[in-house]
Design a binder for these strands. Structure first.
Lengths: 99, 99
DNA sequence: TCAACATATGAACAGTTATTCATCTGTTCA
DNA sequence: TGAACAGATGAATAACTGTTCATATGTTGA
């Protein structure tokens, strides 16, 4: 932990909030689903066999945390992962689990 | 996401459970506190100005998820982070926040 | 403009979780 | 052996969170 002096309470609260977002299987599944491709909300929902509303609610959480990018095309909203950072965090977690 | 075929529902549930552990500021603070040093429970509690019971409960969660190691020395239990994996996950998250 | 469609959103509910208090277990040393 | 101490744990509670239902917003094409 090289930047330990930066790790005051506030930063750790923020960090906890970030990890909270990853700590839900629905959000994780959405993130993996749109990791390498843009997808419309209802297609994500279909793909995961979940309700449109559920996915929409969770996409909002991902949006608020800047983990996804959105683009409107007509009636549809296309979501994709924001950056490779997010993938890296997921892969780090997988490494820990699959070791 | 290179091992995408491994990312079935079960693994993602496990992964979510792992991130849930990181998604609490108390646990995060405990992890950072014992990242580079062994510490007894009451010293962690004092250092964070929290109750012994609170820390003990959270250390149990960390233990159950194999994120910390324990060693008894007399009446005291000395905790430390289990491996560098855990630090890496925290640092990845910090990178995302502090960018 | 209006019907049809895609998505977003608010309220309600159920399930989960962190903290506290009280108490118990286990260790030391006198 | 027993008092003092460190830590663990169960129960209770308050706060939080994910999902669902119903509905609202916004876009398209006729």
């Amino acid at each position: 932990m090289e930047n330990k002096q930066c790790l005051d309470i506030e930063v750790l609260f923020e960090l906890a909030d970030l990890f909270k977002v990853f700590g839900d299987s629905t959000r994780l599944r959405v993130m993996v689903t749109i990791a390498d491709t843009e997808m419309a909300v209802s297609d994500i929902a279909d793909s995961l066999h979940m309700e449109q509303s559920t996915i929409s609610h969770q996409l909002r959480v991902l949006r608020q945390n800047k983990l996804v990018r959105v683009r409107r095309d007509g009636k549809q909203m296309y979501y994709t992962l924001d950056d490779d950072h997010v993938k890296k965090i997921i892969e780090m977690g997988l490494d820990h689990i699959l070791e």
